[in-house]
Write a protein that binds this DNA or RNA. Structure first.
Length: 552
RNA sequence: UGCCGAAUGGUGUAACGGUAGCACUAGUGACUCUGACUCACUUAGUCUAGGUUCGAAUCCUAGUUCGGCAACCA
């Protein structure tokens, strides 16, 4: 993306600078390698910005590669959604779309090569049995039986695995490394397992599938990836990544780890998000409360804001939790610049302008943006009866910051007239039913010829013209800063019951024509976007965020 | 208790032996036809203890704390 967003330097770029300077690399190739087993979330956005942003910075390439080595969890649905989300974020892989599954033949050959080098063997231990052999971190493991099987026999057995001669789980192909290694991942890790599952790409062609550790480094190597960025939990896998490629004697990319993005009041694990979807605690992956890219998109967050966040949080190896306020700030910042203004009343109170003609309807052309004339104007009708916010009337102002109506008080009806409150009607319980006022016909447009100032400007909607809309108010999904902090408690009990509240609003009529997904600032209220299900007949708006600084 | 990694204001991040800066948050004020935006100001930081050096967040030593790793997941 653009320079200001993702091209701030970081420790990885320093490594790349050094590689370029030393001549170790002459061009840069990165990759974003999602497994198509779920939807992308804002944590992935950080990786995407890094992977694609780095390629852009160095005039290199970034591959989109689906790491589809485990058919059980994977699905075409996710393949489509992932591509859509990356494009929405603003990145383009161009020609460079790859599949781990397209390398299954090569991977098989490589496995055979390892066997021929005496570096891999077929192991018939069950998972449980092998656990015992591997032992625990503080104690060396012991060598499994069959570890020193002749190469010929391993070749035969492995072929038999491939040809379906074994039941699922009967055996695995293991790397022969070091059962006493202090790094557990080097204690003869599994390379291939038998799994009769239909693959979304290769169908039933294979009944053995490579494990991540074997597959990923080979994928990177085949594609000529120079710098393979991944998150911190793979740090302990790096020696294995290097071992496989060195033993195979093939092109060796450099794996570099950085810390994931964490946000307060959010969970970022795919597994946990899936739980929320499966248990119907949210409406789906694109529920606007979700930290998924499609959820945030539906909520009204912009791609630019998410990219900006990724630039700001930076790339380090420090495990950190960023405050959600930072994301919200990025979103408001972008929305303030880009979203047209409109008037909407969420808690309506009727105002009757006593001296305004009964049958008159005026229209005002109001600017779509207070500071951007190029964004044009829209036409808003005005008549004798209006809706204003009930919070914009009080019998007795509590402090001098109060902006609304009070008996005898003059305020500006935004873009229309100055009006003075002359009376209030209450029901038997003392609740305000409506208020009365008189307007100053000389103040058309909002300023009086005598130049007098008023304390406040309030928004309004003509009662005769207002359209009713459903408003979905979204808030943080969890009530705890870190919903996973207490490992004994179920994070789902910390879901914020008010993360979605449904309300209604009176909208200026033009909003009926809003395109689904289009964003607005409802002045003095917040940022909203027309929901995917919005129609002119049944208007639905999602509250993206409130305006900053709630009233006090 | 094994291996790997990380420690800078409340949060995130800069500094690459030479003035600890920026952003978010919080607070105060100014401005305002949005209690928004904008602007100004304030609070607040180098994990600890030694050492090297004219000078250390940065280099060295020893600790402390936190995180990751024992799927036929990725």
């Amino acid at each position: 993306m653009s320079q200001d967003e993702t091209t701030t330097t970081n420790f990885i770029h320093e490594i790349i600078d050094a590689d370029l300077a030393s001549g170790k690399r002459t061009e840069i190739v990165t990759r974003f390698p999602p497994e198509p087993n779920g939807y992308l979330h804002i944590g992935h956005a950080k990786a995407i910005c890094l992977d694609f942003g780095t390629a852009e910075k160095y005039n290199g390439k970034c591959h989109l590669r689906f790491d589809d080595t485990n058919p059980e969890a994977e699905d075409e649905e996710y393949v489509q959604a992932i591509q859509e989300d990356i494009q929405w974020l603003g990145f383009d892989w161009g020609e460079n779309l790859y599949w781990a599954s397209a390398y299954f033949d090569t991977m098989y050959e490589y496995a055979v090569r390892l066997i021929n080098k005496g570096k891999a063997y077929v192991c018939e231990l069950t998972q449980e049995e092998f656990k015992d052999y591997r032992s625990i971190p503080t104690e060396p493991g012991k060598e499994p039986p069959g570890r020193d099987r002749p190469i010929e026999e391993n070749l035969e057995l492995f072929e038999k695995m491939k040809d379906g001669g074994f039941e699922d789980g009967a055996c695995v192909l293991r790397a022969k490394i070091d059962m006493a290694s202090p790094n557990l991942h080097l204690r003869d890790p599994a390379l291939y397992r038998i799994k009769r599952a239909t693959h979304h790409n290769t169908g039933d062609q294979w009944c053995i599938y490579p494990m991540y550790d074997f597959a990923h480094c080979i994928e990177d190597s085949i594609e000529g990836v120079t710098h393979s960025m991944c998150t911190l939990e793979f740090e302990v896998h790096r020696p294995l990544y290097d071992w496989i490629l060195q033993t195979l004697d093939v092109f060796q990319p450099q794996q570099i780890e950085f810390s994931r993005l964490n946000l307060t009041y959010t969970v970022m694990s795919k597994r946990k998000l899936l739980e929320l979807v499966n248990e119907k605690l949210v409406s789906g992956w694109d529920d606007p409360r979700m930290p998924t890219l499609c959820g945030m998109r539906r909520r009204g967050f912009t791609a630019a804001a998410i990219r900006k966040l990724c630039g700001i949080v930076g790339i380090t190896k420090v495990e950190s939790i960023s405050e959600i306020e930072l994301l919200e700030s990025c979103v408001r910042d972008d929305l303030n610049e880009t979203s047209p203004r409109a008037m909407a009343v969420i808690a309506p109170l009727k105002v009757i302008i006593d001296n305004y003609p009964d049958d008159l309807v005026e229209t005002f052309d109001l600017p779509n943006h207070p500071k951007k004339e190029e964004m044009g104007t829209r036409t808003v009708p005005f008549s004798r009866e209006l809706w204003i916010e009930e919070t914009d009337y009080t019998d007795m102002p509590l402090n001098n910051k109060y902006k609304g109506f009070a008996p005898g008080r003059e305020v500006r009806l935004r873009g229309a007239y100055l009006a003075t409150c002359t009376g209030v009607e209450k029901d038997a319980d003392g609740n305000v039913v409506s208020i009365a006022c008189t307007y100053d016909p000389e103040s058309k447009g909002g300023s009086a010829p005598d130049g007098r100032k008023v304390k406040g400007t309030i928004h309004w909607v003509s009662a005769a013209h207002a359209i009713d809309a459903e408003i979905r108010n979204y808030d943080r999904l969890f009530t705890a800063e870190n919903p996973l902090a207490n490992k004994d408690a179920d994070f789902k009990t910390l879901i914020n019951p008010d993360a979605l509240t449904i309300g209604t609003a009176k909208l200026e009529p033009g909003l009926a024509q809003a395109k689904p997904g289009s964003r607005y600032q409802f002045e003095r209220v917040g940022y909203f976007c027309a929901d995917l299900d919005h129609t002119p007949e049944t208007p639905i708006f999602n509250r993206t965020l409130t305006l900053r600084a709630p009233r006090k």
